[in-house]
Design a protein around this nucleic acid. Structure first.
Lengths: 166, 166
DNA sequence: CGTGAAACATTAGCGGC
DNA sequence: GCCGCTAATGTTTCACG
């Protein structure tokens, strides 16, 4: 569940796989100056420990017609529970909203956040038209939503899935 | 550069590769009811067209000691250019800032945004201590930065790199 | 689009440091 | 403990029908 011990070679392997997840074990082995079998054993160990969570292909949003990236701050209605003490209710506005979000394909990420706004959503859509349809027909129609503030990406300065290896 | 024509089979392939980027061509071929060679030809075409941008391994931030995810809104100083008309200056606060951001490993994403705040940064760090060091020693020390507002992720409701295929 | 064959990659077992 | 060899098995890739 928590932190894993990584030596220099492990970090090198992770760096390589974060930048090219399809390199062959042989190539990786060569780059970390190991023979294929111990290299593969390390990779397997990292996968089983959950350090490597998944291998994926990253697509270009523009090439598949998703030209607009929005970040939407959402504030939910305050639910006055009152009665049942500190217990988490099975159907709070929060859990309802979290469940709904998971089913909306436009929303690729959603975090509960500190600060005034309760949630931050990352939304990929075709254009403003699609975005406003999503807002009117889906997000603003959800009963738990109190208000929202949207911002749109004008320019991608930096964007990587590779985490810094400390 | 712009949109590419995708048929049903292409979309199926992309969906599969977005969820498992290391599946063998043979497996993919089977799942889309094709034999390996036309399947490989399609994948190669999608890679060359730039629809598939990259294959990567996704790591678990907690497992490598990056327990804190922050979103930081940054506002830059207003630069009074005045003289040189509409031309983009080679050293505006904006381009300086964009270049600096690219070199900070904690910042994994940065977008220029609409709205009051000029930039949105996604920042992965170990803990609050590391975060406040990053703020004091790096972000707030940059001459172009006017002010910042930070929020922290309390809970990951949804997080995927897979884009919805329209 | 599919077949087949050569080139290449993966992976388990075993011995050595 | 971790490394590297070997050998069987499986995969990719391309010319050709």
């Amino acid at each position: 569940m928590s932190k894993i011990e990584l030596d220099k070679t492990d970090r090198k392997i992770l760096e390589i796989l974060q930048s090219d997840g399809r390199l062959s074990n042989q190539d990786i082995a060569e780059r970390v100056s190991l023979s294929p079998s111990p290299c593969l054993r390390r990779i397997k160990r990292l996968e089983e420990a959950g350090v490597i969570r998944q291998y994926v292909a990253l697509l270009d949003p523009d090439k598949i017609g998703l030209g607009l990236l929005a970040y939407v701050n959402v504030r939910l209605e305050k639910h006055s529970e009152g009665s049942s003490g500190g217990r988490l209710p099975a159907h709070s506005p929060r859990t309802d909203f979290a469940q709904a979000v998971s089913t909306w394909p436009e929303v690729v990420a959603c975090y509960a956040m500190t600060g005034e706004m309760d949630f931050l959503l990352r939304v990929h859509v075709e254009d403003m038209d699609h975005f406003s349809r999503f807002m009117m027909a889906t997000l603003l129609r959800h009963p738990a939503v109190l208000d929202v503030k949207s911002s749109f990406a004008l320019q991608r300065i930096k964007e990587t899935t590779a985490l810094p290896l400390v």
